[in-house]
């Protein structure tokens, strides 16, 4: 008789992945918070960005929510991601162009912690070529002791 494997609950969990989100162009960044100081000198660039470029930038990125917060101190931009993580960049004394670059960085990021991949290939699918097996080599060519 066929029955369902007792550990099939595991299957439910293992088929998650953000590859699909990438194909469906769901950006992983869901919110960008721009925090600035009303009078501070280090916020000069961000204030200029808010005045001149924010409207265009926000309309060209409709999948991301933009939130502006006024708070004393150095200016910070934060990205909130679908995986629940947050990335913050301090942008004190930066000019308007560099701020836009930093925003692009937050927008393009997946939100995952940066790790070295070390050339490993990870995939949900089995390798097409298969794993080499010494037992399947032609008996004529097999090593004999």
């Amino acid at each position: 008789m066929v029955s369902v494997h007792s550990s099939y609950q595991y299957v439910k969990l293992c088929f998650l992945g953000n590859i699909i989100s990438y194909i469906l162009t769901i950006p992983q960044c869901k919110r960008i918070i721009l925090q600035f100081d009303k009078t501070g000198g280090s916020s000069k660039g961000l204030r200029e960005f808010l005045r001149r470029r924010l409207e265009n930038y926000a309309t060209s990125n409709p999948k991301i929510e933009f939130k502006i917060i006024e708070k004393a101190g150095h200016p910070v931009i934060k990205g909130e991601y679908i995986n629940g993580r947050e990335k913050a960049i301090c942008i004190r004394n930066l000019n308007i162009d560099i701020i836009q670059q930093k925003l692009n960085l937050l927008r393009e990021s997946s939100g995952a912690q940066l790790t070295r991949t070390k050339g490993k290939v990870t995939s949900l699918n089995e390798s097409i070529r298969g794993i080499w097996s010494p037992l399947h080599v032609d008996p004529k060519n097999r090593h004999k002791i």
């Binding site: 066929v2 029955s3 369902v4 494997h5 099939y8 299957v11 293992c14 992945g17």
Partner: peptide, 19 residues
């Protein structure tokens, strides 16, 4: 199809045979 069936489900791991 895009959001639900595009996910990977390995059905071959679900089988368990008695004999």
């Amino acid at each position: 199809y895009d959001h639900i069936l595009s996910r990977k489900l390995d059905i071959s791991t679900m089988f368990e045979f008695e004999q």
